[in-house]
């Protein structure tokens, strides 16, 4: 089975995030890492490959330096990486990003496309829906357990009220949550071997995507203004004299939060 995993390089979790007020884009110059939930997707893909054979391909849109983050997933056990890096793609919104990723995925023709549920920087949690729509493929999101028999994929979808178990015929798109597995550490041998695995860098032209359909030009949304989050509203300070737990409970119940 051929599995494509869409992964994104994001600012390192420990680094303070900054949005450039000029461009209204996220400052991506600092320490970077692979988006945490995408590692769950990579782990799941590697497990499927280990159990059933096949190939795991990483697909990413991002700057050239994203290759360093992709290498971590290669070190974990993915077979090769495809990075779409093109100046003209900078500033892409969801619509433009999904168009480019869909084009890269069309080229791969994978049986299963895995996504992380949400990125830690954009936090849209929608890209997989847009991509599935463009590819005209069924989608299961928020998946906490996944099985496949090679012709269908079954996902246990986490919801507020429990789990839905959903099956879809392959080829399909699945977005996984961080509950699905514990990503492995890459081994040192994996790290040393990652460099020699195939890593392709593609331009928009390579994918046949018109530059006018990418980046800011191809986006349907514009960030107009940025502001700090509103100050925290009413708060209650409880000194613990032994009854704090009860007071917190009462407070939450009173506001129908529990």
């Amino acid at each position: 089975m051929k599995i494509a995993v869409c992964v994104k390089q994001v600012p390192d979790a420990t680094a303070a995030k900054r949005i450039d007020p000029e461009t209204k884009r996220l400052d991506r110059s600092g320490e970077a890492a692979l988006n945490a939930t995408d590692l769950n997707a990579v782990e799941e893909a590697i497990r499927l490959k280990e159990a059933q054979g096949g190939e795991v391909v990483l697909v990413s849109l991002g700057p050239e330096r994203a290759l360093e983050s992709l290498r971590k997933a290669l070190a974990m056990g993915a077979d090769r990486a495809v990075l779409v890096a093109d100046e003209a793609a900078a500033g892409s919104d969801l619509v433009a990003t999904s168009r480019i990723l869909a084009a890269a995925l069309e080229r791969e023709q994978a049986d299963l496309v895995l996504f992380g549920q949400a990125s830690s920087d954009g936090d849209g949690a929608v890209l997989w829906a847009a991509v599935a729509d463009r590819l005209r493929r069924p989608l299961i999101s928020q998946v906490a357990a996944l099985t496949t028999d090679g012709s269908t994929v079954t996902g246990k979808r986490q919801t507020e009220h429990g789990y839905d178990t959903i099956s879809a015929p392959l080829p399909a798109v699945v977005a996984v949550s961080d509950a699905i597995n514990e990503p492995r550490y890459p081994s040192l041998k994996g790290i040393m071997g990652a460099k020699s695995k195939p890593q392709e860098t593609l331009s928009l032209a390579d994918l046949g995507v018109d530059a006018a359909e990418a980046g800011e030009a191809g986006s349907r949304t514009t960030v107009l203004a940025l502001g700090p989050p509103p100050a925290r509203g009413e708060s209650l300070k409880i000194e613990d004299d032994g009854s704090a737990a009860q007071k917190i409970l009462d407070y939450l119940v009173e506001r129908r939060l529990l």
Partner: peptide, 14 residues
């Protein structure tokens, strides 16, 4: 090098 950084990151995470 990228390998040295990756090994450093691995050791740090572990």
């Amino acid at each position: 090098t990228p390998e040295q950084r990756a090994i450093q990151t691995l050791a740090r995470e572990v």
